Simulated scan of single mutants.
Amino acid sequence: MVRVRIAYVVVAALLVPLAGCGGDDDPQNLTVLAAASLTDVFEELATDFEAGHDGTSVTFSFGSSTDLAEQVADGAPGDVLATADETSMSLVEDAGVTGDIETFATNVLTIVTPADNPAGIESLDDLEGTTWVRCADEVPCGKVALAVLAGNDITAEPASLEEDVRATLDKVVSGEADAGLVYATDAVAAGDSVEAVSIPGAESALTSYFTTVLEQSENAELAQEWVDHVASDEGRAILEQAGFGAP
C-alpha cells in the first residue's frame, strides 16, 4: 500500500508541471494563405492584429488563389484562407475543409504602366503593338482580364502570362513591360513607380474576396479572430485605404 502511494505521488509530481504548459500566454502562430493581391494590406492588418494579441505572430503564404486552394484541398497546413474569387474558395469548400465563408472586399481591374508611360498608353485599345502582360488564364486576375478584354473587343496578345497579379505588376515596375493588367489596389501599392489608367466599365467584372477558417487549423479560435478583424470597421477602413471596395 505504501509503495502504491509513493508511486502515485511521484507520477502526480511529474504531471503538475505539464499541466502548466500550453497556457494562454504561450506564443501562438497563425498561418494565413492569401491571394497575392492582398499582400500589402494583410501585412498591415497583421501589425494591428499582433499588437492586440500579445505573443501572437501571423505568418503569410501569398500566391495565386487557385494554387493556394488546390494546396489546401490536398491537405496543406494552414489556419485561414483568403481568395480573390469564388471558384477557388468553392474548390476548398467541396473538399470539406472550410468553416463559414465570408465575403470581405471587392476589387477592379486597371492598366498600369511605368511611371513615365513610355508607350503612351491611355486605354485598352493602345495595348496593340506594345509589350504588355497579364495574369495566366487559370488564376483569378487572368479570368477577370479575359472578361474585360472580351467585353471591350480587345484582341491584342500579351507578351507573357504571369503566375499571379504581383508577378504581373513586377514586370511593369521593372520596365520589362510597357503595361500590365492588375487590380486597382496593386496600382495603389506600387505608388509613384507606376501610372494607373482606369478601364471604363471594369466594374462589370468585379472581383470579390472570400475568407474562411480552415478545418485543419490548430487554433480555430484565433483564426476566427483574424477573420473577424479583417471584417471589422477598423479592418474595412484599412482595406478601403488600400483601394479595396466594400463587399
Rank of each mutant, 00 (worst) to 15 (best):
V2M: 13
I6L: 12
A7E: 11
Y8P: 07
A13G: 14
A13P: 07
A13Y: 01
L14N: 11
L14V: 08
L15G: 01
V16F: 15
L18R: 03
A19G: 09
G22S: 11
D24P: 08
D24Q: 15
D25C: 04
P27R: 05
P27K: 09
T31L: 15
A35P: 00
A36T: 07
L45N: 14
A46M: 13
E50T: 07
H53D: 01
D54V: 03
G55C: 03
S64Q: 01
A69S: 10
E70A: 14
Q71T: 07
D74I: 07
A76R: 12
D79P: 07
V80M: 04
V80N: 06
L81W: 10
E86C: 08
T87S: 13
A95H: 09
G96F: 05
G99P: 02
I101G: 09
F104W: 15
T106E: 09
T113F: 01
P114F: 13
A115T: 07
N117A: 12
I121F: 04
E122L: 05
L124E: 09
D125I: 11
E128I: 06
W132L: 14
V133K: 08
D137S: 14
E138F: 10
P140T: 06
A145Y: 05
L146W: 13
V148R: 04
A150M: 12
I154W: 00
T155K: 10
E157M: 04
E163G: 06
L169H: 06
K171F: 10
V173M: 03
V173T: 00
S174R: 05
E176F: 02
A177P: 00
A177Y: 12
G180D: 01
G180C: 01
L181K: 00
D186F: 04
A187W: 08
A187F: 09
A187C: 03
A187L: 08
V188M: 10
A190K: 01
D192I: 13
D192C: 10
D192K: 15
E195Y: 05
A196E: 08
S198R: 15
I199L: 00
P200C: 05
G201E: 09
G201H: 04
S204Y: 01
L206V: 07
S208L: 09
Y209A: 06
Y209E: 15
F210T: 05
T211A: 08
T212L: 07
L214V: 12
E221K: 12
E221D: 14
L222K: 14
L222V: 03
L222Q: 07
V227T: 07
D228N: 12
D228V: 08
A231R: 15
E234G: 09
R236Y: 06
A237F: 00
A237H: 05
I238K: 15
E240L: 06
E240Q: 14
Q241W: 01
Q241P: 02
Q241G: 10
P247T: 02
